[in-house]
């Protein structure tokens, strides 16, 4: 769950004096959108994004036209980089990273150690892989949606019912539900045979949520 395990460690970087033309080429070559700017000792000093490039260049150049590039080569990163960079540490967790992405509205976070030395970079895209794994996508299975009352022991009953049918769980998600004091539980069953489990859960008094009403985040249907 630590950022250090999910980040990209081989980071493409630039320095303060890299020209805007070179930055544009680096972003295109490596198919990236964020470029940390570092000092000689790899200390993070700023960040440049493809959006910064687009804003700093005449539109023709941003699109790669050969418009007097020499005239722009004097334009250096230090002139348009963000110096006040939102960062994260290797020992922060991916939950921390998620909240940072949401609150600071950035698409990538440079990862630094306690001395400010760049260790890696983590983007929204890197976390997507973690969530593909968490959701169990990629393993054959089927998802159920169940409403439970918000009290201790509900999940155990559900897991027990599934286990008794000799079915393994790929994942289990619990999310907010639109009714007060209730939760939605989404077990991902590694089986092609969910019918018996569905019936069993209904016998135990649980309501299955209509798949068209499944939702991981909203307040009302």
């Amino acid at each position: 769950m630590f950022v250090g395990n999910s980040m990209v460690k081989k980071v493409v970087t630039a320095n303060r004096d890299t020209s805007i033309v070179e930055v544009r080429e680096k972003l295109a070559l490596h198919k990236i959108r964020h470029l940390p700017v570092v000092s000689k000792d790899n200390r993070l000093v700023g960040m440049v994004t493809d959006r910064d490039i687009r804003s700093a260049m005449p539109s023709e150049l941003a699109e790669g036209c050969e418009l007097d590039e020499k005239a722009l080569s004097h334009l250096k990163i230090k002139d348009f980089m963000t110096s006040d960079v939102v960062t994260i540490s290797t020992m922060d967790t991916i939950q921390d990273a998620l909240l940072q992405f949401q609150q600071k509205k950035v698409g990538a976070l440079p990862v630094i150690d306690e001395k400010g030395i760049l260790q890696g970079i983590i983007s929204v895209r890197d976390l997507l892989q973690s969530f593909i794994n968490v959701l169990g996508i990629g393993e054959p299975g089927v998802l159920l949606g169940i409403v439970v009352e918000e009290k201790v022991g509900q999940l155990k009953k559900i897991v027990d019912a599934i286990t008794e049918e000799n079915v393994s769980l790929g994942s289990i998600l619990v999310s907010r539900y639109w009714e007060e004091d209730k939760r939605a539980v989404f077990p991902y069953l590694l089986t092609n045979n969910p019918a018996r489990i569905k019936k069993k859960l209904e016998r135990l008094g649980y309501s299955l949520i209509n798949p068209m009403d499944w939702c991981l985040d909203h307040n009302a249907p």
Partner: peptide, 8 residues
């Protein structure tokens, strides 16, 4: 596939 086996 988000609602049925095998998820592909």
């Amino acid at each position: 596939p988000s609602f049925a086996f095998p998820g592909t």
